[in-house]
Design a protein around this nucleic acid. Structure first.
Lengths: 254, 254
DNA sequence: CGTCGCATTGAAGCCATTCAAGGTAGGTGG
DNA sequence: CCACCTACCTTGAATGGCTTCAATGCGACG
């Protein structure tokens, strides 16, 4: 099956190149999506600044939103009062999908940065979708992608020890930037240690220690004095570290 | 705002009743959905038995599936070999959403019981949706609901100690049955302790101990000798237990 | 009857949390 | 400008919850 020389050559292509090509393709898809949205019936543009709340849990659902620039976090609160960061959103991501089924937003969407959001009335979007299958496909792909991403989060929390979880979080953030054509070797965390810990299911002290350890072995470097800006010299090395954390004693189901 | 006597009376209605009404409504929605699907262009019906694989991760995406009867589990495997149960599916649930964005299934769907699956070609479904907005709404609501459910899982894993997580898992399962009009006070777990533990991010021993503790305080009872069938005399009591696990020292963000 | 898979339970050890102390950056007002 | 405050981060030490390792029990099946 893999014996064809042509295929073997293709596989032998340096993975860095492949990664870069993937990122460029992803970046193009996001640009296409945004162009598509811009051509949609009156997208309502809105500038936001760090801390701005786009919508709150419980508010009636009217609009879906697409992030043109900036970064958002999603926060939920359970009936018994537990709070949880349940997602991060970057350029090209949609916000509000979780509101569709109940007609009310299911979480708070809070800006972590200055940015621009495009909001679309859901009913109008549906009409536009009926006429433009490509738009419909984009919406479905986005929802599908959100489901996949959520599962990745669950897997990370369920299977990785604390250090690897933090490393995986940084990798995810860097990947998200790379896919959007931004430099990924240098990231500005816009969350406190407490928020990161909440997102990853650990305490702020554990996050702090994990970051210190990663810095000690040079997998990351702190750029600023406040230790919020982090350089990742080699993402591949981070990924290797995550795998090493699993240990040789990998237990599988079945 | 809540001073109206009429509203006060409504609120004073026993919560059990309200819960029951919710369940009935949910049950009706599911019945409607299935009727809607049945009216759709050639839904392909298929009987499955425990262990049958509906689709595998990596296989080309062609169909979405709706579960008419039975229970499924979803399994993913990360690039570095970690395995994870990422979801459970009951009557009326859709399978395959996560495949849309990449054109390939992102996980394995494995039957845990005999049941019947209705499969729909995605391209045909889209055409049908364009003509029947209600069908489109149902699809979107289902995807939205899956996103919400995934976040609940994440919250459970991130914020609850082991015992409460197992209790929450049982509560979720019972709720899922109740919403479908099935008796919820008695559930047959179709997963091994290892699978439950994997889904909840803990070891099989911890699951076993948690169940033993829950049984010791009479929150659950084992029905069969194999300890796979579990009775839940009072779901409310389970919920109270989960809250008590949080302890009075609740820490919030901000 | 023996084996295999799954579940339970105990004991020891470890990783993450908890508790506590101290440090740094940034903002405010004197 | 400095003192002060607040919010955040870091680090150490002790505790505890979960995991790991190991032994045993139980039921199904050939």
């Amino acid at each position: 099956m893999f014996s064809s020389p042509a295929i073997a050559t293709a596989i032998a292509t340096p993975p860095v190149r492949a990664q870069q090509r993937d990122d460029e393709a992803a970046c193009q898809r996001i640009a296409d999506l945004l162009a598509q949205i811009a051509a949609t019936p009156n997208p309502q543009r809105r500038l936001v600044r760090s801390g701005d709340v786009l919508y709150q849990a419980g508010a009636p659902f009217t609009h879906l939103h697409v992030l043109n620039t900036g970064i958002f976090k999603l926060l939920t609160r359970s009936a018994d009062g537990r709070e949880q960061v349940v997602g991060l959103k970057f350029r090209g991501d949609w916000l509000g999908f979780s509101a569709i089924s109940r007609g009310r937003y299911a979480c708070d969407a809070v800006a972590m940065d200055t940015g621009e959001v495009w909001s679309l009335r859901y009913d109008e979007l549906l009409k536009a979708c009926a006429q433009h299958p490509a738009l419909m496909a984009a919406v479905h792909a986005a929802m599908s992608g959100e489901i996949m991403r959520d599962r990745d989060s669950l897997m990370s929390v369920c299977t990785l020890p604390a250090d690897a979880r933090v490393a995986d979080f940084l990798r995810y953030w860097a990947d998200s930037l790379a896919e959007r054509g931004l430099r990924a070797d240098q990231i500005r965390l816009r969350m406190t240690r407490a928020e990161i810990g909440n997102y990853l299911g650990m305490t702020l002290e554990t996050v702090s220690r994990a970051l210190s350890r990663l810095a000690r072995v040079k997998l990351i470097t702190f750029i600023d004095k406040g230790r919020r800006d982090i350089a990742i010299p080699d993402v591949r090395a981070l990924e290797d570290f995550i795998q090493r954390c699993l240990g040789p004693t990998e237990q599988l189901l079945h």
